[in-house]
Amino acid sequence: MADESLAPLAELLPAQTELNGPHLEGLAAGELRLQHCTQCGAYQYPPESFCFHCPSTDLEWKAVDGNGAVYSFIIVHQRYHPAFGDRLPYNVAVVELDEGPRMLSNVLDVEPDAVEIGMRVRARIETLGDEGAALFFERAAGA
């Protein structure tokens, strides 16, 4: 289910690096993959070569369900970048995943004033352009 208004975001996708590669490859495969510390068990994003919590360097990549709740959000009315021009006003949400990390993203398919702090959401991965994909969220079933 491609959302056409998101298409201009393709040009803003991050370049693939040694560090973010597994995360981006996961999104391209339709999966949310996060780093997981084999020592302390914490999940983390953004990726690093060490654990922000313990700080072991023994990290593995794991797919997660991508369920979480809105921690805070805003509704952007100002046109900061042409890629967002057609979507104004749009929400930006801080989503706290059940696994712990907080992600900066958008809750799709809701009216701007329908987003609430505490609202349950689930990951929704959208393909952008030919090869890219990005993480968004949508209201969880029943939320």
């Binding site: 975001l9 803003l12 996708l13 991050p14 973010n20 953004p46 952007v76 100002q78 900061y80 970048h81 890629a83 967002f84 979507r87 749009y90 930006v92 992600m103 900066l104 993203s105 958008n106 952008l128 990005a134």
Partner: peptide, 14 residues
């Protein structure tokens, strides 16, 4: 109005 690293697609500017 610098965009934020890998999360720039979220559109949090400024």
């Amino acid at each position: 109005a610098r965009p934020r690293g890998d999360s720039v697609v979220a559109g949090l500017f400024g």
